[in-house]
Design a protein around this nucleic acid. Structure first.
Lengths: 209, 209
DNA sequence: AGGTCAGGGTGATAAATGTCATATTTTTCA
DNA sequence: TGAAAAATATGACATTTATCACCCTGACCT
């Protein structure tokens, strides 16, 4: 396994090198201290895994990752950081970075590197526990809480699909006038003015967008 | 490392056992063939990692995972599956499952188990490549792509806040009639029928909900 | 039998919306 | 500079919406 390490803290870089090369099958091919170097070293060595700090002086690890992944979407990049940050995680994942873990957690670095090497994605503990949070759906529209009946709720959801009263009537087998009355009631209960506000309200209180 | 394996395919279970126990430090504490058993075996053995098939006859792995994680949020569960499925991934991650990978990919099973054991989260290759997709923000509403002018776009966004023509006119220092004309044009360009559909369209094509 | 309440309906009416044809004024630019 | 292309505006009109007052039916209660 050939690794490239990029970290602007030289101590960290050498510590990592020591930890990794303790294993017989791991070889640190090169190391650098800045995002720009990361790009250069990646091009030059095409390592199995690029271990990179996310915050660095000139060019950040994130920018470097973007650059590298644009050139080689198969690149296996593993971020190292001293703190976890939602924004970074999401951004990094969007780029296609293969992992993200904490420096402190030195015992987990080697398994993580191995896993990434087989093409998998790895997250550190702190980040993992936040994932469900990050992925959680928005609270869904609770019609009972607003005093809406089942039928009224159906009307609301159809309004939020852009249907006219006539269409809603057809859909629910009601007369157009009844639908009008329903909507009038609903607007009253929800303290809204017209169907457009109703659609907006529903859409912004529902996850399925 | 103590592992519990649950898979309704006995062949797979024993193959996994063989692969894992080839390593000196791994011990398969027990194995089962159904979600119900998974829950029981987890309670009984509290393994370092629970390796579980996601699709099983009676109680699915997903249901079992939910149950187990409710009792022990720290449980390290690693799903195994023969096919990848977006729905499952997202659901599993929401529950707090620690990983998800393909059975075929037997070389990556051991590193994955080790990584999960140190508390990390691991995804198989196929899933990883989908992650950016899953997390990608909704494509933002590109008004130029629809031939809308800057001003028309402003009108659209106000419609999508539920403002009336008069209010929009006031907001943009236009006459009400002009706003009406704008909206008429916009609806034409976007092939929509009324302002409610416009609001829905805008909201569903914008990420900031 | 009478009361009442929810679900569904009608019709009248006023306001808001959408369409169109037709100006007027600015901008832009060959 | 002069003409085309925008941005803005008006008025007339048809449609759709929203509100309201009232009606009918059937279930349920007592």
């Amino acid at each position: 396994m050939r690794i490239v390490i990029v970290d602007d803290d030289v101590l960290v870089a050498s510590a990592l090198k020591t930890i990794l090369e303790a294993e017989g099958d791991v070889k640190v091919a090169a190391s650098g201290t800045d995002g720009k170097e990361a790009v250069r070293l990646y091009r030059e060595h095409r390592p199995d895994v690029l271990l990179m700090d996310i915050r660095m002086r000139e060019v950040s690890g994130l920018a470097a990752a973007e650059e590298i992944l644009k050139e080689d979407p198969e690149a296996r990049i593993l971020f190292l950081t001293t703190f976890s940050d939602d924004e970074y995680i999401v951004k990094a994942l969007k780029y296609g970075v293969k992992g993200y873990l904490l420096k402190q957690d030195y015992k987990s670095i080697l398994p993580a590197v191995r896993a990434v090497c087989t093409g998998q994605t790895v997250f550190g503990t702190e980040i993992t526990s936040k994932l469900p949070e990050l992925l959680k759906e928005k609270q869904s529209f609770d019609y009972r809480a607003h005093g809406l009946s089942e039928k009224e709720y159906q009307v609301v959801s159809l309004v939020a699909e852009g249907l006219s009263n006539k269409e809603i009537a057809g859909e629910l087998f009601l007369s157009e006038g009844t639908v009008r009355n329903y909507i009038s009631d609903i607007l009253d209960k929800l303290r809204l003015r017209d169907r457009t506000q109703l659609a907006v309200y529903y859409l912004t209180h529902t996850q399925n967008i």
